[in-house]
Simulated assay, not measured.
Amino acid sequence: MKTITLTQPDDWHVHLRDGLALQRTVPDLAQQFSRAICMPNLVPPVKTVTEAEAYRSRIIQHVPKGNAFDPCMVLYFTDHTSPDEILKIKNSEHVNAIKLYPAGATTNSDNGVSDITKVYHVIEKLEEYQIPLLLHGEVTHAHIDIFDREKRFLDDVLAPLLKTFPKLKMVLEHITTADAAEFVLDQGQNVGATITPQHLLFNRNDMLVGGIKPHFYCLPILKRQTHQAKLLEVATSGNPKFFLGTDSAPHAQDAKENACGCAGCYSATHAIEFYAQAFDQVGKIERLEGFASHFGADFYGLPRNTAQITLVKEDQIIPESFDYLENQKIIPLYAGKTIQWRKV
């Protein structure tokens, strides 16, 4: 297949940041996707519906004229989130979910939940109102190996959570292991998962062999090739429990190429082409539309898009960098390399 036309896709997990960063991130994302779940881990975090509406307004200011991009907002779950705020989400037009970061799990997550059992009284309301709980699925204990943190989260946190709240609508974000894929497969239709382009296309060898490559560093970290193979299997299976979430996360070049570099891959400029590459590599390009354009909207109870995009199988070179903030650059995922698909 040399050409494929898709319903315009959505991104169900992205980081746009705030302030000057929006000048870069919003147009990049809007030229690929119709809607996006915008992560709330700003400084300070987006903790209330009022704050989310204000953040959405700041994003809208940077949507290119004539583009219908629709930011879907999420609240940041803290130890102090009130059950009353969950009712406000239910009644909000633009806030679609709440995001739980274990404290210290990733960028700007210090305000995250310290112990999930402390917020069970709030999760009870999420289950009642069928508001999606989005989870960064890693434990953060210092003694747990970084490559094992997702598996330990499944065993220690998620299994007890779903036993207590079996009807909870939940998305396990950016899954990276075969264990997480199997866990989601074993649950009911109330449990879904997003998968990033980097975890479909790459594994930890790409990040570490021949020297450390900081622009492949993200959290959860890239895993073994066997885990990558399982993610490709479920993403291309046509199972509606798995859908697109880039986890595109901008950091300036000097913040990535650093003695203590930041976690995050910037894929927003070419995300759908990356996914096309991954699906095509395993001979399943015809399954891309469901994963990218249908299943996420269905899970969130939103209408599928009606606009379409076309991809052609034609080589393109990912740019080496893009302008970002003042006098800084951002290095995109797979910078300077050739991929075989292009959006027209």
Score class of each variant (00 low, 15 high):
V191R: 04
F202N: 06
K167L: 11
I221D: 01
T164A: 01
F202E: 03
F202H: 13
F147D: 11
E150K: 08
L219C: 03
K223Q: 14
A159P: 00
G192W: 05
A193P: 05
R204I: 15
V184A: 01
L172Y: 07
R152Q: 10
L222K: 08
N190E: 14
P214R: 09
L158P: 06
H227Q: 06
K167F: 01
D148M: 12
D179C: 06
L168W: 09
G188P: 10
D148I: 00
Q187C: 14
A181R: 05
L219H: 07
P197V: 09
K151F: 08
H174R: 00
M207G: 06
Q187M: 10
M170F: 03
Q198K: 02
H174E: 06
I144R: 08
D186G: 13
D148L: 14
Q225M: 06
K163P: 00
A159V: 08
F147Y: 15
L201S: 05
G188R: 07
T194C: 05
A178Q: 15
A193F: 11
F153H: 05
D145Y: 11
G188V: 04
A178S: 15
E182H: 13
T196V: 09
Y217D: 02
V171L: 10
D148P: 00
T176G: 15
F202R: 11
L200I: 12
R152H: 14
F147N: 12
I175K: 05
N203W: 13
F165E: 06
P166W: 12
L161T: 12
T164F: 00
L219E: 07
P220W: 01
P160N: 09
L208T: 15
L222T: 06
T177E: 07
L158A: 15
T194H: 06
T164L: 01
D186S: 15
M170W: 00
L219T: 10
D186V: 00
N203F: 14
D145Q: 09
